[in-house]
Design a protein around this nucleic acid. Structure first.
Lengths: 340, 340
DNA sequence: ATGAAAGCGCTAACAA
DNA sequence: TTGTTAGCGCTTTCAT
């Protein structure tokens, strides 16, 4: 239950001006009192803070930004937030941003370069302090992003990054990840490997494949591997069925992504194949999907969460005047599950 | 390659003032020209828009908000964005917000009531036009939220909603969902059902359980059911093992959530139980996890995406002056998978 | 220790 | 058709 006087106070807008009028003092005194300026007397400070609390005063972020020319807003642009990998990235950035007292503007591009440009306008309208972006596969021209950088707004590309090299990138070590998966397969003495990759046009596919194939060719004496591409889980499932119906006897399957893995694992269940006895499985994953199965699937980890933390640090470094562009890479980790 | 003159233009801040100075006209003329005010001559409009494009002018969102007293920002507060259900909700709201030209401020509470209050301050600082919130289980006092409503900021509670009834709620029909799952089990003539629910303190658990048990008691003549609670996937897994090691012969398992389902399905794989021959499985889910298995798990759908759309509509209705509070409920759908 | 005043970028009522 | 002016809420310099 609120007292009448409190009700009256609450019903007017809580601004510095309103507080100043109530207290018969100037706006600047109120402002200073509220931010513990040393010049302000204890008595004044006390009166002001008490009334401010009563009125539930919160500074108007827009007025502050306008005045200080500093928005304290980061923008994150991703193809779609409804994606395990990206939302763990967002989650990590949110945590760090909160600590540093920044807010987040989250934008989806839907893998559409035109929407990307629209979103960039929103970033500019909101005078974003910095931008994190994972670009769409069709984005080749990054002039718009470079423009932001020229104007002093750091842009950190992450995950899906452009090929140009004069920009800040924070990536998974995709080639290294593919290499590590191949190495694990060879360590386990797999001789006849089915490797299923995603859309061959994506740079992520190219890099993972390059690492995988390199390792196989360099150190895989005696081991055979066949490469397929599947754009969806359903396609991966079909490939799997074809491969195991034709009597070919692979002893291991490599899945480039969760999408592929789910298609393959459905095939495994459909055909009643026993893992790892009849067949070894290894995947590249964020970690959620592999632990749904028994035995849990062994995978090389690509953590959106860790990438988010790394990207945020890079952002802070850019903001503190570090103008050199850098290409950072997240070390990959193998997580043993029992499927190989 | 940019011309020198363009470079010079780009290097100064793109504001109405800067444009006005270049063109030797007043700020208001420029402002009007840019928003196609009918009073402005074609010649002037053309000159202004051309220069504005050259300078890549974007209005300063903070100045606009400050002046118009309208932020065009919605705030969404959830326990954690790294959650399948919530991020599909966020995704839906983002889509609608974009159409209406609103931005999104996304905040995580970490299921902590104190953080919730902090977040609410952020909402106020950003003068959010409206707030979507799924509260933490420990939040009993919703005064802070009511305060926002009193000050004209609509608050739409979704999913995890408070018990008080003078507020806007958009929920899954949790009781109905439980009831529907029970009905499906009875239709399939299941006689001996293991029902695993989540944390018994959560209202969502209570409601789903109430619906389930009600239906069983009302129409389940001849069918037995036993209720367990598991707070994590691992606990559900343990229960499952105990239940099937002790020689008890359930013919179906009901899982209240994805979390429970993953624990149970791991048990199914570990014990090599054949679905649906030896055992029927039914779950309540967003839809992602059930389709990872073979056969796909039959589930009653709880769509975060659809809930997001519904919540957004409710928000628009509140903003257009509809002050009556309402409690909306999303109809549930049964999705046949083959596991029962 | 406190106040007055300018200005951030924009909109809109009023004037010309 | 265009310009002048005031003001949104805040910070900060300069004065007192």
């Amino acid at each position: 239950v609120l007292s009448l006087s409190k009700l009256i106070l609450l019903n007017q807008k809580a601004t510095l001006k309103a507080i100043a009028e109530q207290l018969q003092m100037s706006i600047s005194t109120v402002s200073r009192a509220l931010k513990n300026h040393p010049d302000i007397s204890e008595a004044t400070r006390k009166k002001v803070t008490e009334l401010a609390n009563m009125m539930e005063y919160e500074p108007n972020a827009y007025a502050v930004s306008l005045r200080t020319n500093n928005s304290r807003v980061f923008c994150i642009m991703v193809p779609a937030v409804s994606n395990l990998f990206y939302h763990s990235f967002v989650s990590a950035v949110e945590e760090e941003a909160r600590k540093e007292n920044y807010s987040l503007l989250i934008l989806q591009s839907g893998d559409n370069p035109a929407t990307e440009i629209d979103n960039l306008k929103l970033c500019r309208q909101n005078r974003a302090t910095g931008v994190f972006v994972s670009i769409s596969p069709q984005t080749t021209n990054i002039d718009h992003f470079n423009r932001m950088v020229e104007q002093g707004v750091p842009v950190i590309f992450f995950d899906k990054v452009p090929t140009a090299d004069n920009c800040n990138k924070v990536c998974l070590a995709d080639s290294e990840v593919g290499k590590m998966a191949a190495r694990k397969l060879l360590e386990k003495k797999k001789k006849n490997i089915l490797a299923i990759f995603g859309n061959p046009d994506l740079s992520i596919t190219k890099k993972r494949m390059q690492g995988f194939v390199d390792e196989m060719n360099t150190n895989g004496s005696g081991a055979k591997h066949e490469v397929y591409h599947a754009k969806t889980a359903a396609e991966a499932n079909q490939f799997f069925h074809l491969s195991f119906k034709n009597g070919q006897s692979y002893d291991a399957v490599f899945c480039m992504s969760d999408e592929i893995l789910t298609g393959v694992m459905k095939g495994v269940q459909e055909l009643g194949i026993s893992i790892p006895k009849q067949l070894g499985i290894i995947s590249i994953s964020n970690g959620f999907v592999p632990q749904l199965y028994h035995p849990e699937i062994s995978y090389v980890e690509t953590s959106g969460y860790k990438l988010g933390k790394l990207a945020f640090n890079r952002m802070l470094s850019c903001m503190s005047g570090n103008t050199a562009t850098e290409e950072l890479t997240l070390d990959s980790v193998f997580v043993e599950g029992g499927s190989i």
